[in-house]
Amino acid sequence: MPVHIESVSHRYGTVAALEGVDLDIADGETVVLIGPSGCGKSTLLGIIGGLLKPSDGVVSLSGTPPVESLNPFTYIFQDFALLPWRSVRDNVGLPLEHRAIPAADRAGRVAAALALTGLTDFADAYPRQLSGGMRQRVGIARALVVRPAVLLLDEPLSALDAQTRQLLMDDLLAIWGREPATKIYVTHNLEEAARLADRVVVLSRRPGRVREVLRIDVPVADRARPEHAARLAEVQRRLWDLIRDEAATADREMVDG
């Protein structure tokens, strides 16, 4: 569903994290937010999902979410945020337990989400028994089970090693083909941005502002093909050109200054 971000600003005490961010996101679009560390991209994601109250500005959703969407704005977290005392199945079922839906529907949704993420055989395992990649698949299944209208992905692959990251990126793309949700994806990884985004929003360093919006004209489904490799490499180079100086400056700033 279309999401509208209107002149959103946020301050932590006296530190301005975001300043006057305006952004319209179309239905079903994948928007990747990138920027130097500390630019407020995770803060913006927290505001969009209603976990943080912006100091100024409004985030709104056009239209009414479909009835089967139990939790219109749904997160996938960098550190997975799984409950270690619950099995995979019970972690995935957690968001449904307090909803008034028939038990059969509940079990069906959980089974479908487990199947989609390749977790069916691991349903009774506990998070500690799983690799990082499998843990994040649980996080993805838990998000899909509520049929989100807007998926908010907060550096979902950053805690994974490079190889697992590649595998999960492919999984995300396969899942996204069937998911109508609008996706807002925060990362600092340029390769992820070039692979996954319809549009990349580059934020400036603190306080974060929209510095540039870059549309990638290669269809997401075709990006693995070799004839597009040069184009995507160019996109990554362009993104790096936009970020490099600011990242270098941000790197030299005192963290709490």
Partner: peptide, 9 residues
């Protein structure tokens, strides 16, 4: 935060 993000009471 995760619990809140899924609307848990």
């Amino acid at each position: 935060r995760m619990g809140q993000s899924f609307g848990l009471p």
